[in-house]
Design a binder for these strands. Structure first.
Length: 331
DNA sequence: TTTAATGGCGCG
DNA sequence: AAAGCGCGCCATTAAA
C-alpha cells in the first residue's frame, strides 16, 4: 500500500524513501542530500546571519502562549530544535560555546514524562521501578517479555522503549505495529501484556478518557487545563484525536509546569547569590546555563538540587547534568 | 514582494 | 476512517 499525504498525493518522506532504497539506490542519495540540505539551510547558513551585532550572540524569543500543553515555544531562531541525533548535526551543536572563562552547563530531567505517568497513575510496579532507580525501558521489557531483568536483550529493550513512548502519545496497537514493523496481532499482544503488568496505567488511561469526556477538559498536576472541544465529536477521527490529546496533555503539561518552576527557582537563586552565571536556554526538559569557571563548583550541584526539588511527586525527579566548552560537550 | 498552503523534518 | 503528543522553519508552488 502506497503511503499518501493528507492531500492525497503519494508520500516521499524518509520512511518511504528508506523502503524504496532497497530497489533504487538513488533514494539513499536523495535522503543524504535532504539531510545535509536541512542542516545547511536551517542552521549552518541561517544562524550566523542571526547573530546580534551588539552582543555577538543569537537571541531566541520564547512564546508562553503558543503550545496548548503549556510548553514554551522558541522562535526567531528556534533554539529548541538544534540537531543532536546525528554526528553531522552534532557539529552544529558544537558551535554553541561558552565565553572565555566560562563553561556550558546542561541539566535535564531524566524520563520526566514517564515519571509523571507513574505519579498520575499510581501504578505500583512503575512507581517501584523508579524508586529503585531502574532502567525503565529495561523494566518494561522484562515485564512484557516475561524475562528476568538481566536477560533483557537490546532488541527487547528497544521494543519496550517504543511501547513506553507510544503510551505517552496515546498510540494504538496499529501504530505500534507500524512503528515496530510487526503484525498488529503481535502489537496487540504486547499492549495487552503491558496493561496486565501495569494495571494502574491501564486504569489511569481509562479514567482520563472518561473524565475528559465528562468535563470537556483535562488538567496537569498543577491545575492548568487543556480544553478538548472534539472529545464528544460525532466524527470518530476527531474524537480519537482528542482522546490522544487527553492522554498526552497531563504528562507533557505537567513536565512543562515543572521546568517552569525550575526556571524560576534557578533564576531566583542566581540573583539572590549575585552570581555571574546566566540561564540562557530552556529545551522542554533541559536548562542550559553559562557558568564562569569560578562558580562551577557551586552552580552545578545547586541547579541539580533545585530542579529535583521543585515538586514532591510520588516518584523521584532525577536530573542529569554535564558541562563542557560547548553545548554538545555538555551532554 | 508578501502570503498561504504543502510536504517534509529538526527537536523534546 | 484513521491509526503518535507538542512545536518552528525550510523549500517549493501558487496566488495576491
Amino acid at each position: 500500500m502506497i503511503k499518501k499525504t493528507p492531500s492525497g498525493s503519494p508520500s516521499v518522506d524518509e520512511e518511504v524513501l528508506e523502503k524504496l532504497a532497497e530497489d533504487h539506490p538513488i533514494c539513499k542519495t536523495l535522503l543524504e542530500h535532504r539531510g545535509l540540505s536541512k542542516l545547511k539551510g536551517t542552521y549552518t547558513d541561517k544562524l550566523p546571519r542571526m547573530v546580534n551585532a551588539k552582543t555577538g550572540r543569537v537571541h531566541t524569543t520564547y512564546s508562553q502562549s503558543t503550545a496548548v500543553t503549556g510548553r514554551l515555544a522558541s522562535l526567531d531562531p528556534n533554539l529548541q530544535n538544534i540537531p543532536v541525533r546525528t554526528v553531522e548535526g552534532r557539529r552544529i551543536r558544537e558551535a554553541f560555546i561558552a565565553p572565555p572563562g566560562a563553561k556550558i552547563l546542561s541539566a535535564d530531567y531524566s524520563q520526566i514524562e514517564l515519571r509523571i505517568m507513574a505519579h498520575l497513575s499510581g501504578d505500583k510496579s512503575l512507581l517501584e521501578a523508579f524508586s529503585k532507580a531502574e532502567d525503565v525501558h529495561r523494566h518494561t521489557a522484562a515485564e512484557v517479555f516475561d524475562t528476568p531483568l538481566g536477560d533483557v536483550t537490546s532488541e527487547q529493550r528497544r521494543y519496550a522503549k517504543v511501547i513506553n513512548f507510544g503510551l505517552i502519545y496515546g498510540m494504538s496497537a496499529f501504530g505500534l505495529a507500524q512503528n515496530l514493523g510487526i503484525e498488529r496481532s503481535a502489537a496487540q499482544a504486547y499492549m495487552a501484556k503491558y496493561f496486565q503488568r501495569y494495571p494502574g496505567v491501564a486504569a489511569y488511561m481509562e479514567r482520563t478518557r472518561n473524565e475528559a469526556k465528562e468535563r470537556g477538559y483535562v488538567d496537569t498536576v498543577f491545575g492548568r487545563r487543556l480544553w478538548l472541544p472534539d472529545i464528544r465529536s460525532a466524527n470518530q477521527a476527531r474524537r480519537a484525536g482528542a482522546e490522544r490529546q487527553a492522554i498526552n496533555a497531563p504528562m507533557q503539561g505537567t513536565a512543562a509546569d515543572l521546568i517552569k518552576l525550575a526556571m524560576i527557582a534557578v533564576q531566583d537563586w542566581i540573583e539572590r547569590e549575585m552570581l555571574a552565571t546566566k540561564l540562557v536556554m530552556q529545551v522542554h526538559d533541559e536548562l542550559v546555563l553559562e557558568v564562569p569557571e569560578a562558580e562551577l563548583a557551586r552552580v552545578k550541584p545547586e541547579v541539580e538540587r533545585l530542579m529535583m526539588g521543585v515538586a514532591k511527586l510520588d516518584v523521584p525527579l532525577v536530573v542529569d547534568a554535564g558541562m563542557g566548552e560547548n553545548w554538545e560537550e555538555a551532554h
